[in-house]
Simulated scan of single mutants.
Amino acid sequence: MYNFEEELGRGHFSIVKKAQHVLSKDMVAVKIIDKTTLQDDELDHLHHEVRVMKLIRHPHVIRLYQVCNTNTKLYLILELGEGGDLYEYLTKNGKMDEPRAQRLFRQIAEAVAFCHQHHIAHRDLKPENCVFATRKHEEEEETIKVTDFGLSNDFKPGEKMKTACGSLCYSCPEVLLQEPYDGPLADIWSLGVILFMMVTGRLPFQEPNDYQTITKIVDVKFEIPAFVSNECKDLISRLLVKEPSDRISLAEILAHPWLEGVVINLPSATPYANGRPVISDEQHERILATMSAAGLDPTKVTAALDNRSYDYLASTYFLLAERERPSFPVLIF
């Protein structure tokens, strides 16, 4: 099914490896979680993350292809962000020019808006969780995707969250003050920190110690360099606002003058009843023929798609479909 290659990363309970799908030859990331080391609440949290990733299918969110659950391990087959993460890029190369930052920031904002439309707050937005799809940087078709929904949570409009989470430098004042907070508005603050770093090459709030950093964040004390355009300054200043209800909305972000004229090829987010990407009948039949030639039953493939499965059959179909049409529209489950 998959040929494993080098290790990409390691956490407390998991290892991420690069692997190649045998039939499609596409590279994927495989997150291997050792369930024997997890407490019951940690297992519940893990299952929640998987449920969220199944729900959020968007061109600018890292895609979950397959879930394989055994007695001791959980394997998540994920889209591979081959170009590294945004933090790594900015640390190595410094700030971006604004036209490029506009394109990439809009992609991130579109992904977050889609999550919020489906009542999911990410709660850990930061450059480390924004990954480049390929190593082809600084090109018009450059794509960035949001990942890591480990701290995400469902929300009801107007309902406050209480669990403080996220990374210090990207956390909003109300989270640091341990106040009940609005998840989507906390995400908007984090978008402001990400944008600031993209156009300046540094964080707006980073002091020699955590206490000083927290003080700066709570007091919202930051300075935008003079080389940043007035329109970009305006957007940052409307994102990084102490009072959550005064922060700019995602609809206003996407309509802001700084992003005016920035167009990304975002497919329609129309739901599809049969769980299949929108490809032609000819492409669909060609994929089924390829899978049949590999010994996979087309009837079972069709059933896996109709049942919205996250098994090997469905993942193989979708990987082959991406080769037929790399930008096929979003699916909502």
Rank of each mutant, 00 (worst) to 15 (best):
G11I: 04
H12T: 15
S14M: 06
V22K: 13
K25P: 09
K35D: 08
L38H: 01
E42F: 13
H47S: 10
V50D: 01
V52N: 08
K54R: 15
I56W: 01
H60N: 15
L64D: 06
K73Y: 08
L74P: 02
L76R: 05
L80Y: 15
L80D: 08
Y89N: 01
Y89R: 09
L90E: 04
L90W: 07
N93Q: 14
N93S: 12
E98I: 10
R103E: 03
F105L: 08
H118G: 07
A121R: 06
C130A: 13
C130G: 00
A133I: 11
T134P: 12
H137F: 15
E140F: 02
E140L: 10
E140Q: 12
E141L: 09
T143N: 01
K145Q: 05
F149D: 05
N153R: 15
F155V: 12
E159D: 05
K160Y: 07
T163K: 04
L168N: 02
P173R: 09
V175R: 00
L177S: 12
P180K: 02
P184Y: 10
L185P: 02
M198K: 05
R202Q: 12
L203H: 04
L203I: 04
F205Q: 10
Q206N: 13
E207S: 06
K221E: 14
E223G: 06
P225K: 06
P225W: 01
N230D: 15
E231Q: 14
C232G: 03
C232F: 04
K233E: 03
D234P: 05
L235E: 05
R238C: 05
L239Q: 01
I248S: 09
E252N: 14
A255C: 08
A255V: 09
H256Q: 10
P257E: 05
L266D: 06
L266E: 11
Y272N: 11
V278L: 14
D281G: 13
H284G: 04
E285Q: 15
I287C: 08
A289I: 00
T290Y: 07
T290H: 08
M291S: 11
S292R: 14
S292Y: 09
A293V: 04
T299R: 14
T302E: 13
S309Q: 13
S315N: 00
